[in-house]
Design a protein around this nucleic acid. Structure first.
Length: 356
DNA sequence: AATACGGGGGG
DNA sequence: CCCCCAGTATT
């Protein structure tokens, strides 16, 4: 096939071998470890995922350890990484492989795709790195590198673009070293062909880069962005028993953000409200029927604004002292065992009655 | 084809 | 403030 293909791959891999970072999942082909690293790294920077990878390997050295854990333990270890469906699916897939497949991972792209939480990218990564199957990965880095070098203006988040880039990557892949090629092109995007101000003059592909030739490096890749941010108003009811020994948590069971994580009892309102409006609400009426309320103090006058990529949460914490026994209390000493969103973790770590 | 799903870091 | 990050599942 095209000579350009071989040359591209050889140049890329040559660059990679000289410039790759020493990461714990490199030089490593145990499917369990590669799979774990790939799930952690979905939409996540290496620097952010690294400590999580170490903690997971330490807590769960094998897939059986992970499979035998509770979902709560897995979510707790995942706390702070975001996209918590990854953790839930990680646990589901660990159980599937440990108990239904005798601890053995599927060994082909096609079969890997059947695993929960494993999509096109992750199946390609595992198949190529662990099993030498020439299936090309296309992540954010690959979109950027290929769109620039080949001057492709098709939107990367359109159906057409997704197919076009996958096909191109598949043509370019080094069929003898697919895992190395895949990691090389991602590393090149992450370390050299970066989103802002890449050093094109020093680039090994400067001579062939279509975007550089046409002076449109900073225009690529093209991405159709839509992202309307929703504003929500959260009122957390932070219960404290009289002796300040216990509080109350609830698990979010609904679809939506933070599924299966814990938080304080929540009353969501259409806008920012004062205590009177909470007091008059149906939700609070139900709440106060089972929880004896003594005194209410607003912890933060100005709402805490917790920003997710698609929602802004305006949050007030209402501290409620309770004279009677709290229904299903959580001892303060055990508060930190529960997986909670960062918004809640931040409150717990700064609210003095919850210290030690 | 669009949308939901976290949180952090860089310019 | 904006964009992006070793994407996937659901609608």
């Amino acid at each position: 096939m095209p000579k350009i293909t071989t040359s591209f791959s050889n140049s890329l891999i040559f660059w990679y071998l000289q410039n790759k970072r020493d990461l714990p999942w490199r030089n490593e082909i145990q499917p369990y470890r590669i799979w774990l690293s790939e799930i952690i790294l979905q939409q996540t920077r290496v620097a952010q995922g690294l400590p999580y990878y170490s903690r997971f390997i330490k807590a769960f050295p094998t897939i059986f350890d992970l499979a035998n854990a509770t979902e709560e333990q897995v979510l707790k270890l995942w706390q702070g990484l975001g996209y918590y469906s990854r953790a839930r699916n990680l646990h589901i897939t660990a159980k599937e492989i440990a108990f239904q497949r005798d601890g053995k991972f599927p060994e082909t792209y096609k079969d890997l795709l059947t695993l929960k939480g494993v999509g096109d990218y992750t199946a390609s990564a595992i198949a190529s790195i662990c099993f030498n199957e020439p299936t090309a990965v296309v992540d954010g880095n690959v979109y950027r590198v290929l769109s620039r070098i080949f001057g492709i203006e098709t939107a990367i988040n359109s159906g057409k673009g997704i197919k076009e880039f996958k096909l191109l990557a598949q043509e370019l892949i080094d069929r003898d070293r697919p895992g190395t090629f895949n990691q090389a092109i991602m590393e090149f995007g992450a370390r050299f062909c970066v989103p802002q101000n890449p050093k094109c003059t020093e680039c090994i592909f400067a001579n062939q880069c279509e975007a550089l030739r046409q002076r449109k490096v900073n225009m690529l890749p093209v991405k159709i962005r839509k992202q309307k941010i929703k504003e929500r108003h959260f009122n957390y009811l932070v219960m404290i028993s009289e002796e300040e020994q216990a509080t109350l948590l609830k698990q979010r069971k609904d679809k939506g953000i933070w599924q299966n994580l814990y938080e304080f009892p929540l009353i969501e309102t259409a806008s920012e409200v004062s205590w009177n409006e909470i007091n008059d609400s149906e939700a609070f009426k139900n709440f106060s029927e089972v929880n004896k309320i003594e005194e209410v103090i607003l912890y933060n006058e100005k709402p805490v604004i917790h920003k997710l990529s698609h929602q802004h949460l305006y949050t007030k914490f209402w501290v409620i002292k309770s004279s009677a026994q709290i229904e299903k209390p959580v001892p303060i000493s055990e508060l930190r065992k529960y997986p909670v969103p960062v918004l809640i973790e931040n409150f717990i770590s700064e609210f003095s009655p919850f210290q030690n």
